[in-house]
Write a protein that binds this DNA or RNA. Structure first.
Length: 730
RNA sequence: GCGCCCAUAGCUCAGUUGGUUAGAGCGCUACAUUGACAUUGUAGAGGUCAGAGGUUCAAGUCCUCUUGGGCGCACCA
């Protein structure tokens, strides 16, 4: 026999084992050709950088399920891939180029996109290596990228389908514009941050009868109405009256309207309505038929509609206007308030709501189906409480702005006759013959310059990765996928949209179960952040304690939808556990094979099979066999119910304390007994229990269990080449 | 404003159809250990399960309220 090393040396062993697995083809579902499919499509990590510990957490959960089902004999497929992450990646590469003194606009679109591809090749490769280090048993031959050829054609197909069904439209609507990113973003991509602000009370001019209150005076150049609550006695007589106003030279007709959205208690109870620069005012303008005046442009500067303020940045215009209001004695007072500032989820700069010509997806019809799929139980969300969050979002859904003024992404498959830009600035009522939607534009048509929201392509992920829209054998066999394992923070961005797109485009649910994990926090339960300096790099931890230890630490003690606290001491504890597995195995190996080992014989007890003689069982034997029997069913039942922590905890307790501390201690006497039969029986039990326990633990700690398995193969007959492809013990 | 989660040992957390004496890891105390493993073992201390009320033969678990902490959605003129 080989000599078992004294300690489990993860560093030398893990990557070698992984290479071996990958080369052997054990990650392919074809190793269980007759098994029923079990499929997980990885949530594709962004190509923006390297993976953090949250990725390690998700990947571990996914890989655990895949390995368990592979052992059960299912055709288990773990589809790897990455997301091009439009806005995020474009920003990162732009920043890098600027550092090198290169301006994106001088470079031009084509060259810039080339630069992003270079970035993708470099960082994408690193990410894939990280996934391997975590032990992800993905079928790498099926790896996909959201911007690869197949997925691009899926995106075009999806767009055309939705367009033809009248579920995609173009129009000029108020959108969330990020002046820094230079693009529109979706409602869901807007975050809020409380800030201190000044609330200014003033009149447009001396003749106007109502004082309004606002935190953004500069937008008031675009006011076309003042809204009051219909029940407000103070303004009752003014409702429906119109006034000619002059705000520092900008003349408007302002109508007083009544709208229930107005809070009587806030400010003066009268709101200056700025249809072009406030979401709610836009809606009021639609309801009341008010004109819309755009006074802020895409660069965050005042337009000609702001008179002499034209060209000023928003904040500058605000200062100057307040000065004017003071000097003209129009400012009644200013107060300090706290309000919420809308910021961009990517760059955190202030969002400027403004009207813009964009593409939208009609969400209501899609949302109904998505709701029904979960209501009926066809799709199960774990933990169940997130169903409520999901329904709430779907019930209040608004149309989804899908065009982005970026270069990196799926270019919108729409072509215009003669010019793309001309049509964009003209009315949304374009002639049908001037527009072409699809793959083969007629001569002289120019493609829309915008790209699609990155979530449009990720929304297709569960089926586009399997070959859709072609009816490939993979699509036939593996779709719908089985489990969607991802973080609860992207339930709207991603999960809900996959369900909507899947139902609409394939007519089927994209997956049966949604398992949502929480955030990984530090030992004191704080969010990990660079500024706190408490960020844990999974690769460092893996180098120090081993992948298996990290995997155990992430899974045991964590429950779905709940954040999990992980620090080095926890990981260290599970490193000790992996060493325990190694050493207990070493004990078994040494004791079982001591004496002369002939082929087919295990030590001097002449073991030629693993049949246990029931009549010879000692109380210790009976106890451990009982526990062993029950741990097998408990672990399977927990994993089947997605209770990964419980199964892991029980395995830990069983293996360390029942098997090592109790049974192995007991065998020390039994193995030195005079009766060869008893010694042989004990050895058989040791082998049987160790062998099966390794399989039970393999989904959690894949490396050490296979390393031991390889040692066992030296003296135990009939073991599979790798524990990965052995069978779950019944 | 609407909704969700959390509160269990010093710390971080499990405890999923309500059911013996409420568990784990880390930490702590004492002892052991040339032994498969000090990346160890044995023993132990430590909890009115946030508070109050209710349902029940039985409540950490279900219901109502209160307090404290966190989060989501909407609004934010």
């Amino acid at each position: 026999m080989k000599t078992f090393k004294k300690n489990w040396e993860h560093f030398e062993t893990e990557s070698k084992l992984y290479d071996l697995w990958e080369k052997s083809g054990y990650f392919k579902p074809e190793i269980n050709p007759d098994g029923k499919p079990f499929v997980i499509a990885i949530p594709p990590p962004n190509v923006t950088g390297k993976l953090h510990i949250g990725h390690a957490y998700g990947t571990t959960l996914q890989d655990l399920m895949i390995r368990y089902h592979r052992l059960l004999g299912d055709a288990s497929l773990y589809i790897p891939g990455m997301d091009h992450a439009g806005i995020a990646t474009q920003t990162v590469v732009d920043k890098k180029l600027r550092k090198d003194g290169i301006n994106k606009n001088e470079l031009g679109r084509e060259k810039f996109v080339e630069e992003v591809w270079k970035w993708k090749e470099e960082y994408g490769g690193k990410i894939l290596e990280q996934l391997r280090a975590i032990g992800a048993s993905c079928d790498w031959d099926r790896e996909r990228f959201t911007l690869d050829e197949g997925l691009s054609s899926a995106v075009r197909e999806a767009f055309v389908h939705l367009y033809k069904k009248d579920l995609i439209y173009r129009g000029e609507y108020i959108v969330n514009w990020c002046p820094k990113c230079g693009t529109a973003i979706a409602d869901d991509e807007v975050e809020h941050e409380t800030q201190k602000a000044k609330l200014y009370y003033f009149k447009y001019d001396k003749n106007f009868p109502i004082t309004i209150a606002t935190t953004r005076p500069e937008t008031k150049f675009g006011d076309t109405a003042v809204a009051v609550n219909p029940g407000d006695e103070r303004y009752k007589e003014l409702i429906d009256k119109e006034f000619e106003t002059d705000l520092d030279g900008v003349k408007r007709t302002i109508k007083v309207i009544a709208d229930r959205a107005v809070d009587k208690e806030f400010g003066t109870g009268a709101v200056g309505v700025t249809p072009s620069h406030s979401m709610i005012d836009w809606k009021m303008a639609e309801d009341h038929g008010l004109p819309k005046v755009k006074v802020i442009n895409e660069y965050g500067k005042m337009t000609a509609e702001a008179g002499k303020y034209e060209g000023m940045k928003v904040l500058e215009a605000r200062e100057k206007l307040v000065e004017y209001l003071k000097s003209a004695d129009l400012l009644e007072k200013e107060t300090d308030i706290e309000n919420n500032l809308s910021i961009c989820y990517r760059c955190s700069s202030a969002i400027e709501p403004l009207p813009s010509l964009q593409w939208f997806v009609k969400m209501k019809p899609l949302a109904e189906k998505a709701k029904a799929a979960v209501k009926s139980g066809e799709i199960e969300i774990i933990p169940k409480r997130f169903e409520k969050v999901y329904f709430h979002w779907l019930d209040n859904i608004r149309d989804w702005c899908i065009s982005r003024q970026l270069w990196w992404g799926h270019r919108i498959p729409v072509y215009y006759r003669n010019s793309s830009d001309k049509l964009k600035v003209e009315s949304q009522k374009f002639n049908e013959e001037d527009i072409y939607v699809g793959d083969n534009p007629p001569e002289g048509y120019i493609q829309d310059s915008d790209v699609l929201d990155t979530w449009f392509s990720s929304g297709l992920w569960p089926f586009s990765t399997l070959g859709w829209p072609d009816e490939t054998p993979d699509f036939e066999k593996f779709y719908p996928t089985t489990v969607m394992e991802t973080g609860y923070d992207i339930i709207f961005f991603w999960v809900a949209r996959m369900i909507m797109m899947g139902l609409e485009l394939t007519g089927k649910i994209p997956f049966k179960t949604v398992y949502l994990h929480g955030l990984v926090r530090d030992e004191q339960n704080r969010k990990m952040s660079k500024s706190l300096g408490n960020v844990l790099d999974p690769l460092d931890l893996i180098a120090k304690y081993g992948t298996d230890a990290l995997r155990m630490a992430l899974i045991v003690g964590s429950t779905p939808g709940q954040d999990v606290a992980v620090g080095e001491s926890k990981i260290k504890g599970y490193r000790n556990f992996t060493n325990k597995i190694w050493n207990a195995s070493r004990f078994v190996s040494l004791r079982v094979t001591d004496g002369d080992l002939q082929s087919g014989e295990l030590g001097e007890a002449k073991i030629t099979d693993l049949n246990i003689d029931e009549k010879l069982l000692t109380p210790a034997d009976k106890k451990i066999l009982d526990s062993h029997k029950s741990i097998k069913s408990k672990v399977a039942s927990h994993i089947d119910k997605f209770q990964f922590s419980l199964a892991g905890e029980e395995l830990y307790e069983y293996f360390w304390h029942e098997f090592c501390d109790e049974y192995i201690e007991a065998t020390k006497d039994q193995l030195s007994a005079d009766s060869y039969q008893l010694v042989a029986n004990t050895k058989k039990i040791l082998i049987k229990i160790l062998k099966e326990s390794l399989v039970l633990m393999h989904p959690y700690v894949p490396f050490v269990t296979d390393a031991v398995w390889q040692e066992l193969r030296e003296f135990v007959p009939g073991l599979a080449d790798s524990i990965m492809i052995s069978n779950w013990p019944k």
